[in-house]
Structure formats: structure tokens, C-alpha cells
Design a binder for these strands. Structure first.
Lengths: 127, 127, 127, 127
DNA sequence: GTGGTCTAGACCACT
DNA sequence: GTGGTCTAGACCACC
């Protein structure tokens, strides 16, 4: 279901967050769906349960998941809405990155064609 | 000349690296120019000399600066070339970010117009 | 595992870098292998943790090791490739040294036989 | 007569030592010849007199020059002999470097042909 | 004065 | 526990 790369510099808990969010955005996880339990997922991914707990906790904060003590963890009703809202925030980070590339002399056309290319890809390619 | 935010999550030495690189790309620092000394800059920014040393050392590794023990630290001859080469590597990171935005439903046109806007800005705005 | 000479003019952190690289080239350390922790090695060698950190950090920069905060430090997948690439750069330094020896009247035959001798040695002798 | 590169990582006093030794080995400076005075050379090269003093002092130690207080600094009688003797010592350094290159997989033939090439060059090329 | 190395010890985020 | 950043302060070689 998920896969973590322990050699990556990206913290494991962030990898999990990213993958859950991706599943939700792709519609592979629907509102109300139950997530695997902390313990089950920790075993499946061979990581510490605390790490899963941290990922689920953060996804709860973001309104993507809803933890129900004693029952489990579920995809929240407006998970997709929350995510889209959140990602919109990241556009300012993109601006920052673009300014640095512009400063380094990367021509506008190169960026534009990269954008075209990405948007021509099949949904979910290589993410 | 430089400014650091000690409360930022970005390490201080990386802030300095980023600012030096920016000055070089903007042409505000030319090849052969002498950098402020490790000690002088550490006092100006109220940080430990070791932190400046680390930043200068990394910039030396990257071929942006040239440290000469006993004499000082200078902008290297092909600093801009080295930087452009290096930034080009970061394009793959941009692709990754674009895929995430696409997945979140941000329309292509919005990205394109953001790119246009950035490239219309005056050199060095708000970086 | 490693040994450092604090009286040497070669900085301790460079000694460590050199020895790690040697182990990797000899195949005594394989991709994916975990390095001793910063603290453990600092105790074993009786040097400051910062010194080990500097060595590991530089080896990470060179693509020989891969540091993963919270998990440890591992030999990277293409460590050997990176090292060979890097060593090839040092051939120009060899040329320089050879010219000086030639100038001092060391005959070509003497150099050639030294080369022969070195390449006849068992792998890793006396390095 | 001499030239120093202040951007080089090689200490200035070592650059001077190297160049004096080279002139002696090439026969461009003969035993008994007088060296430029410390002050004159320091002005010509735009470096601190202390730096010249240090270079001359080391060359005196090595038996290449002979300082006569109040008179000046002269090329010693057996300067060439001393130098050849000294350079012979550096062969062990060469062995060390060769072992590292061997370990990095540089083939013997490549080294051999580099040696051939160097020894075919005109005397003093590019040193 | 300069850059560079090292120690000692603290604190952080991540597992 | 792990790697990583930072401070404080010392010492070195070089100019």
C-alpha cells in the first residue's frame, strides 16, 4: 500500500503523509475509509509505531484524517478540499524557487516547456 | 550586507550561502572581490565564527569562493558558471513540486501565468 | 576499524575521509552498509564528535556516504563510481609531481620501475 | 624573474621556494650567484618582506642558498646536489599517490603512458 | 591580521 | 538512540 525509503533524507513520517495525501487526491481513498491501524502499518513498513503515529497525528491536524480514539483513523469528509486549500499555500514556495532559477539564468521558455510536459503526463506518473 | 534570521528553520550557514550566491548571480559581487573576513562577518551578524567558516567552506567546495589561508576569501573566477551549473540540477526538484500541484488540481494556466509574472519582475525582486 | 594520528599535519577529519574511502574502494564496505555512529566513532578514536561529523558530512557531499538524520550514516549505492571519478581528477596533480622529479634528474626508468613495483603489490599493501 | 599567485592555496613562501629550486635545477642560477635582496624581491612581487625572508630561510636550511649577514644571499656550491638528494626523498610520496590511484582502478598502462608523455616534454614545460 | 582545525558542551528534529 | 546545527573558546600556519 505504501512504501518508505529509509535511505531518503525526507523524514519517514513526511513520506507517509505525502503518500496518504496522494492516495486521497487520486481518489484511491475515499471519505470514511478506514486507515490501517498504527501497529499494522508500522509492521508492514518496518518502522517504529511512533513514526506512524506522528504521521497520522499531522494528517489529523491538517483535517485529512480523523482519529476516533478506540475505533481507528478515517479519511475525513472534506479531505480533498482541505488538501487543495493547503497545496495552494505552497504556490508561494514555488514562486521563490522560480525566482532563484530565473536569477541563475534558466530561460523562461525552459520552465514553460517543463510545465507543459508535466501536465501532459498521465495522472500520477512518477510522483 | 547580509542578514540572518536565527529563528528560521533554515540553518544560518545555509542562509549565508544562499545570500552570497544571490549577490554573485546579481553581479553585486565580482570575481576577485574579497569577502568580509570570517571574524568580521561573524561580529556583524552576531553569529559564531565557526558558522561563517562553515558557510565559506561550503562555498569554497562549490567553487563559488576561493579561500586563501592567511590572505582572505575571494569570489572565484568562474563563480557564476559554477552556480548556473548547480542550479540546473535543481530542475528535477521543480518537476516533483509541479506534479504535486497538478495532482492537487491547480490548473496549468495558473502555473503558467505565475511563471510569466515571475519572469516579468524586476531583477532580484523579493528574493 | 580506523586509526588517527593526532600529531600528523594531515587534519584528523581528512584522515578519516581517506580511510573510509579506502575501505569502500577495497570493498570492505559495501553499498548500504551502516557506518559507526558519529558518537561511537568519536569515542573509539578519542576525538570530538564534531570532527567525525565533519568527515561524514564531507563524505556525504562527495556522494560516498548518505546521512539519514535519526537513522544513521550509510555507504551510498554508487560510492565506488563517485570515488573513481574523483580520483581521476587527481591525475593532473601527479603530472605536476612527475615534472618536478624529471627536473631533479630522476631518470624515467626509475619512475617506470616504481610504477611496476606498486602495481605488482598485493591489494592494499601499506596504504 | 619570479611570479606568485596570491589566489593559489599553495603558500606564497612555498611558491617562491619552488621557483628558486627550479631555476637552480635548470641551471639558470649558478653556484655563487647572488639572489635579489629580501626587500627588492618583496617589492617586485608585492608581498610582505617576512614572506621572502621565510622562503630564503628555508632554502638556507635546505642548503640551496647561503645567507651571509650584511652581504646578501647566494646560491650555494652544491645546490644542485642537495636538491637532487632532497627530491629523491619525495619518491615515497609518489609511491603513496600511486597506490591510491591503483586502488581507484586507474590502470597501470594509463600511468605508464602519462610518465612517457611527461618525459617526452621539453625541459621545463609548464612547470 | 587571515583562514582552518579542534575541543567541549548544548540543543534540535527524527526514529 | 541517530545526524545536524550552533556557541564558546583555543591553537595553528600563513601573511
Amino acid at each position: 500500500m505504501f512504501a518508505v525509503d529509509v535511505m531518503s533524507r525526507e523524514p519517514v513520517y513526511e513520506q507517509i503523509i505525502r503518500q496518504v495525501e496522494r492516495m486521497v487526491l487520486l481518489g484511491l481513498m475515499q471519505p470514511g475509509d478506514q486507515m490501517p491501524s498504527v501497529r499494522a502499518l508500522s509492521i508492514e513498513l518496518s518502522v517504529n509505531p511512533n513514526t506512524i503515529q506522528k504521521a497520522y497525528g499531522e494528517l489529523d491536524n491538517r483535517g485529512v484524517l480523523q482519529s476516533v480514539p478506540g475505533r481507528g483513523c478515517f479519511v475525513s469528509a472534506d479531505a480533498v478540499g482541505r488538501l487543495r486549500e493547503r497545496k495552494r499555500t505552497e504556490l508561494s514556495g514555488l514562486s521563490q524557487a522560480l525566482r532563484e532559477l530565473k536569477l541563475a539564468g534558466i530561460p523562461r521558455e525552459e520552465i514553460q516547456s517543463l510545465v507543459e510536459e508535466i501536465y501532459r503526463e498521465e495522472k500520477g506518473d512518477a510522483l
